[in-house]
Design a protein around this nucleic acid. Structure first.
Lengths: 113, 113
DNA sequence: GGATCGCGCAACCGATGGTTGCGCGACAAT
DNA sequence: ATTGTCGCGCAACCATCGGTTGCGCGATCC
């Protein structure tokens, strides 16, 4: 029962900084490398690289506005990502629950000697 | 509304190979660096390093059996991890849903000019 | 005792997340 | 129109990490 998760997507949202960037973009409805960099503990250049990764993964999308490069979240793609996250979590949870049940049954069986 | 996710834990389960290792350990109720390496596209040494990371993160736990070093999953810790995954997914989902609702309201408002 | 098995350690390599430094084009001001 | 500032992209460089190969050692099996 392989969870069939898109590893491309995982590596994009696996990075903590990129997750915080997505959060910021969602909260403010968009932003630039400079505006995000001002609210993060990394430089503008680092943010720009991350934006490139997210862009190639299809999670964000940029358009030029004057001398600014404004990024916004692609809600559909991020929705897919969120769903996959929840799916993996649920799969593990289910598996753990099953194991726990079996363990308890064995416990009971050995208790009554 | 910061999601307050433990970055330590994320980086541990963020790696695709480590996730597959956890799956294998769960499916077989434990394993060694060699046994896992045989079922993965990487060498035993790479697996051993990953096991070290998972061990330090508290997700697995080893005990020596003869000349074997047998690892098993710490179900409680993995349960916490699964819960956090689901939580982040749900948080994004909720936020996206809220944004969509607002967007639709604006749409309607501007339509009736 | 000798062959084998499982493991740890060390050196090395490529990709990646981060930095600094620089130059260029777009906008603002006098 | 020139001059200054702002936002950005490009390049060089560094540390860390996931991966490899190679080796040596201790435990186990004949």
């Amino acid at each position: 029962m392989t969870t069939a998760v898109d590893d491309e997507l995982w590596s994009a949202i696996g990075d903590p900084t990129r997750r915080r960037m997505l959060d910021l973009l969602l909260a403010e409805g968009g932003g630039t490398a400079t505006s995000l960099g001002a609210q993060l503990p990394v430089t503008r250049q680092a943010v720009a690289k991350h934006l490139g990764v997210l862009d190639r993964a299809g999670l964000v999308h940029a358009d030029q506005v004057g001398r600014e490069r404004r990024y916004r979240v692609d809600e559909v793609q991020l929705g897919r990502a969120a769903a996959e996250l929840a799916e993996v979590g649920a799969a593990w949870d289910a598996r753990l629950r099953r194991i726990k049940r079996i363990a308890e049954r064995i416990e009971r069986a050995s208790e009554q000697h």
